[in-house]
């Protein structure tokens, strides 16, 4: 019932031991996944407390942005609105989840300083909290996705199960980047600014607002953009397109390597994190 009925904390006992302790933290957080959910829900509901629309405010502002950009760019590019608006809508919503998870990841540990410095709550709990919060937000934004897909008739070709698989890859990858940003931000306070700038840059070099075809013969550069693959894995199936096999390969590889690296860093600095804060 209480946080721990048996607690053992010891000094360093070699690298392997540090990994075991990090794994124990991970396992403890999985056992208390419901706490991470509660915290995430609390975050969402307290951010919009007192407002009538609640979290749908971001949905609304996102909807306006989709309309604005969709209409203007469709004219600039000379593309039919019914092809372009869904592209932009899905792009903005799913890229929003990617960039939200990553930029909010910077605050993961800093925000939890109070709890981390006087309880034995697992650190991973706060990583899940950030991820869940963004998944909950995405849940609200799905309204836009569904509305657009129905209005423009894409729902007939949409392949939801494949898109769901893509979403799993998206969340998995955004998750490790988020945690890595959190660990780095705890130690170096310049990181949040850097991360924000990088994500701002990323939204323009990733085909969020523009169709891939516009790149012409330069299309290959996108293969090196991880955000393109994350976005593509969700957006393409919803718009009746195919996801290239190498996109899945890229995402799977990135998730494995990314989590391995992040977990190793976590294992190495785990006992120091609370002192950074």
């Amino acid at each position: 019932m209480e946080t721990a009925t048996h607690m053992l904390r010891t000094g360093r006992r070699g690298t392997l031991f540090e990994y075991q302790m990090a794994l124990r933290d991970l396992r403890a957080s999985v056992g208390r996944m419901d706490l991470a959910w509660s915290l995430a829900w609390h975050d969402v509901s307290s951010r919009y407390r007192g407002s009538i629309l609640g979290p749908f405010w971001i949905t609304l502002s996102m909807g306006l942005m989709v309309m604005g950009i969709g209409v203007v760019y469709a004219n600039l590019f000379g593309i039919a609105l019914q092809d372009f608006l869904p592209l932009v809508a899905l792009g903005i919503v799913f890229f929003g989840t990617i960039s939200g998870t990553i930029t909010e990841g910077c605050d993961t540990f800093v925000q939890a300083a109070g709890m981390l410095s006087q309880t034995s709550l697992p650190m991973f709990t706060f990583v899940w909290r950030t991820m869940f919060r963004n998944v909950i937000n995405l849940g609200h934004h799905l309204v836009i996705v569904i509305a657009v897909l129905i209005y423009y008739g894409f729902w007939r070709h949409a392949n939801a199960p494949v898109a769901a698989l893509g979403l799993v890859f998206l969340v998995l990858n955004a998750g490790w980047i988020s945690m890595l940003a959190g660990l780095a931000s705890a130690r170096f306070r310049d990181i949040p600014q850097i991360v924000t700038s990088v994500m701002q840059f990323a939204i323009f070099v990733t085909p969020v607002f523009w169709p891939v075809e516009r790149l012409g013969s330069h299309k290959w550069v996108l293969d090196f953009n991880p955000f393109y693959h994350m976005l593509q894995a969700v957006r393409a199936p919803l718009m009746g397109g195919q996801v290239a096999a190498h996109t899945y390969l890229f995402l799977a590889g990135m998730a494995v390597v990314g989590w391995a690296v992040t977990f190793s860093i976590f294992a190495t600095i785990r006992r120091r994190i609370v002192h950074y804060l």
Binding site: R9, G11, S120
Partner: peptide, 21 residues
């Protein structure tokens, strides 16, 4: 704070049996 489990010892060990508040 070390007894609460928040701080990790640099050397030695802490062992607590029971629910900690």
């Amino acid at each position: 704070r070390a007894l609460s489990g928040a701080y990790e010892p640099d050397e030695g060990a802490i062992e607590v049996k029971g629910r900690i508040a």
